[in-house]
Amino acid sequence: MAISLNKMNQPQDVVYEQFEDLAQQQETYVIGMWAFLVTEVMFFGVMFMSYVVYRWKYQPYFYALHQELDWRIGGINTFILLLSSFSVALAVHFHQKKKKMQTLACLGFTNLCALAFLVIKMLFEYIPKWNHGHYPGPGFTWDNPNIPGNIAQLWYSLYFGTTGLHGLHVLIGIILFSVLMFMIAVDHPAITDYLPTEMLGLYWHFVDIVWIFLYPLYYLMPK
């Protein structure tokens, strides 16, 4: 069968054998996903909590250390993630209306944003910092006499740990979105309704929410 870009040709609205009807199946998936997101919140919660404890303990140093980050780059990335979140919401909207082209376009745009986010982070933040020797470990170099080197390392540990975990989530998102797009594009029989898009969308919005808190905490507040 030829693959059309405009029509969804998958089997539609299949109810798995453990469910009674579609509505039940859909609500169950949403609850399951939210229960999983609860674990994700607690997961990042530890990173935020560590940050809060040390920032509170070393306030003056941490305030000074925040100058290490450029709010413009962070701001651009914030906006990129907002856009991607929006386009995922749109993708769900279109998938619900069974518009294949638009769904794919929105998902593609999301993936592009996610990629841009990672590239910007790498090129303008991680790599320059790495080149300056600003990474935790024995190779850490520090020449600001006003801030003790160990505190700076602690701060960089938090920064790399938290943004790294967030970046990992972005990476996982990119992979999952690519798989999903492929499956939708070739009318894979496993995609029977908009739920996969919605589930992945929920995950992606969560990644955005993490950044919504991360950005002011690391880039903005101390200014």
Binding site: F43, G137, L154
Partner: peptide, 22 residues
């Protein structure tokens, strides 16, 4: 995640619990 942070500390020297780093 807490155990993972210890892994980070052992592998990548990301020392969130490290007394040496304060």
């Amino acid at each position: 995640i807490t155990l993972l942070l210890v892994v980070f500390e052992r592998v990548a020297k990301i020392g969130i619990f490290s007394p040496e780093l304060g």
